[in-house]
Computed example of a mutant assay.
Amino acid sequence: QYSAATTATSYDAVFKVMNTWRWVPELRFVGQYHDHPAYIEALVKSVKAHWKAQPRGDLLLMSFHGVPKRNLMLGDPYHCQCHKTGRLLAERLGLKDNEWRVTFQSRFGKAEWLQPYTDKTLEALPAEGIKNVDVVCPGFTVDCLETLEEIAAENCENFKQAGGENYHYIPALNAENYHIRALADVIQQHLQGWQETLPDYDEKVIEYEASMSQQRAKAKGAKQ
């Protein structure tokens, strides 16, 4: 999912470095792949693998990292892309509307962040009669403190203190083969059109032409 707070700032860091370069290469960025079929399929396999090993809960809670609501109001597509990922995953899993929800975690500070909040939702679920829940964090490609401590540990404790019974955290895609294949598919898609991907590309020919070009330049006085 694209967010100005993360994706765009990565672009800024790259451009800051290249701002000092005299010869800037061609660039291509992967801005988002929130609805890429291979990514959704990887999530589907992950959830199904968990359900095969553990009893399925009453609700699949999809928790995404939160951002201030102001970001959405300024035109950031992150909120919409999170919901699209959630909807596509739910559709592929064959879930009914009351069997899944999208929430947002990791808020801090006094400003309003994207809602509903993950922690508040989990604390309220037992009162709604939902006492068995599975939680997945589709926006995290690998597990970290925010998934293992905040989601898998702290929110599990809060859920059970509120009357919940069974809480299962579904690990991030991490180094699973289907995750690697999904990333490879995304990369292959964005590599289309580059010279190196064309059928007639020959690295030896390119190296030879570059060498000859260098020799001609030196013959005319170039120092390197």
Rank of each mutant, 00 (worst) to 15 (best):
L183I: 04
L125S: 05
D58N: 08
D134K: 03
A219F: 03
D143K: 03
I40M: 04
E150F: 01
K120T: 13
W23T: 12
Y39D: 10
E112R: 05
L173K: 01
T147V: 01
S3W: 01
H65M: 08
M212V: 12
V14Y: 07
E176W: 00
A38H: 03
R181A: 14
K16T: 15
K160V: 10
M212P: 00
E149S: 14
A219D: 10
L191H: 09
D97M: 11
Q115C: 05
I170C: 07
I40P: 05
K16P: 08
W100A: 13
E165D: 14
V136L: 11
P126F: 00
G163A: 04
K96M: 11
N132T: 09
L88K: 03
G193Q: 01
N155K: 05
C80S: 11
P116N: 01
A182R: 02
Q189D: 15
R181P: 04
P138F: 00
G57W: 07
A5T: 05
L125Q: 06
K16Q: 13
T197P: 02
R107E: 12
K223E: 07
A124W: 03
E196I: 10
H36Q: 04
W23R: 13
W23H: 14
A217R: 15
H168E: 10
G163L: 01
V205D: 08
L89S: 05
G163H: 03
S3Q: 07
E26K: 12
V44L: 06
V102S: 13
V44D: 02
A175D: 13
R56T: 09
N19D: 15
L114S: 10
K96F: 05
T6K: 02
N155F: 09
A172F: 00
H50D: 13
G221K: 01
T7R: 09
N71F: 13
W23Q: 15
R22T: 11
N174H: 03
C144F: 00
G75H: 03
H179F: 03
M62Q: 12
P25W: 01
L72G: 11
T9S: 10
Q189P: 07
P199W: 00
R216F: 11
A49H: 06
E112F: 00
P171H: 05
M73I: 09
V136E: 02
I151C: 06
R101E: 11
G139K: 02
V24N: 09
D12C: 08
D97H: 10
P68I: 02
Y33D: 05
F15L: 11
G57P: 12
A127N: 10
G94W: 00
F140K: 08
V186F: 06
G129N: 04
Y11F: 13
V30W: 06
A222S: 12
L88Y: 03
T6L: 02
I180N: 08
V136P: 06
E41H: 09
I180A: 13
G94A: 03
H83T: 01
Q1D: 13
G94K: 01
K69E: 15
L93N: 05
T103V: 14
W21G: 08
G221M: 04
V30D: 13
Q54A: 15
T103H: 08
P77L: 02
D185E: 14
T85H: 02
E91S: 10
L191W: 06
Y201W: 14
E146S: 07
I206W: 12
F15D: 09
D12A: 14
D185K: 07
V136C: 10
